[in-house]
Structures are given as structure tokens and as C-alpha cells.
């Protein structure tokens, strides 16, 4: 089914109100990219720090993260790298941040703030054991908030995304 965009007048009138309400509900910005194979969804954000990033380590981390996503689809990964290796993540459709002059700590703090992340995973190791441990950590991520609060929050954020 093709979902039509609401009329411009409705977007202009209701968009700012819904944005404010959704903001109050908290959580990451609606519509945040989750990878090429995953549609945006209202799920907790995990900041995955790739320390000592190079093409090889990034490929391993991407593989571990996507395995966890396919297995649970319970989180939205946001990557933070400490070296200018952005293209593997962008090719795979993920959000990636590059640590700037403030250093890795500042970049992680900023990513947590920007995407309302409550889990930070540092993926510094190499090899299958590290990758498995990373996947395991991500699989341990809790599901989103349930109950009336969770439902209201999801409704507001979905409405904001529709009227953007």
C-alpha cells in the first residue's frame, strides 16, 4: 500500500505541534537510518564505538552488528569511528560519526545526546571472538518500552515522521 503524504496545509499546521509533543516523549529522532536492510523504527539506539577503525575492523564490526540486527531487530546502531573510514558504514546505510577535535570521548557523548542512546558498545577487538561478543552484547539489548506510555510515545513519533 502506498502511503500518501498529508496535504501541505496539514503538515504546516500540525507538524510543529507534533514535533514538540514527540520531543517531550523523548527518544532518538524519528526516521533515523538503521541500515540498508532495515526500515526506520522506534527502537533504542546503541552507539557502537569502533576504536582504531580501519577497513578491516569496520567490516568485522558491521558484520557483527548486522547479525545482531537480523537476529533481534531490537535496536538502531549509530557508529562512531576515530579514523576517517566512513564509506563502509554509509554504503551499508548506517549513521556514522567521526570523532572530531574534541576526541573520541566527546564524540561518544555527543552521539549519545544526539540520538538519545542508552547503550554504548566499544568494539575495539579483532577476530571472531570479539565479533561474537559484540553480537552477544547487542542481542542483550532490552526491547522498547511497552504499555500505554510506550504506545503513546510511538504514536507521537510516528505522527511526527508522517508530517515532517
Amino acid at each position: 500500500m502506498i502511503r500518501r503524504q498529508p496535504p501541505a496545509l496539514v503538515r504546516r499546521a500540525a507538524g510543529p505541534v507534533l514535533y514538540r509533543l514527540a520531543r517531550l516523549a523523548g527518544g532518538p529522532p524519528p526516521g533515523l537510518r538503521r541500515g540498508r536492510d532495515f526500515a526506520p523504527a522506534d527502537l533504542p539506539t546503541v552507539v557502537v564505538v569502533v576504536a582504531g577503525a580501519d577497513e578491516g575492523s569496520c567490516a568485522e564490526v558491521l558484520d557483527a552488528v548486522s547479525r545482531a540486527q537480523w537476529a533481534s531487530d531490537a535496536f538502531t546502531p549509530v557508529f562512531v569511528v576515530d579514523a576517517p573510514v566512513l564509506s563502509p558504514f554509509r554504503r551499508a546505510g548506517y549513521v556514522v560519526e567521526l570523532a572530531g577535535p574534541g576526541g573520541l570521548g566527546a564524540a561518544v557523548a555527543e552521539a549519545r545526546r544526539s540520538y538519545a542512546a542508552d547503550l554504548v558498545v566499544v568494539a575495539g577487538g579483532r577476530g571472531p571472538e570479539a565479533a561474537d561478543a559484540l553480537t552477544g552484547l547487542l542481542l542483550a539489548q532490552r526491547p522498547p518500552i511497552e504499555g500505554p506510555v510506550g504506545r503513546s510515545r510511538r504514536f507521537l513519533r510516528a505522527a511526527e515522521a508522517r508530517l515532517r
Binding site: A51, G52, G105, V120, V122, G124, G125, A130, A131
Partner: peptide, 23 residues
Amino acid sequence: PVVLGRAELPAGAAALLRALDGR
């Protein structure tokens, strides 16, 4: 508010932890 999961303890992880800890 945050769980800092570490997949492994690589060389230099302690320095990284220190950098993150301040923040």
C-alpha cells in the same frame, strides 16, 4: 543511563575508558 559494553579488552582500552570516563 548507560551501559558501556566492551566486546574485548584490546590494547589501549584503558586509555579509551579514561577518555570516555571524563565525559
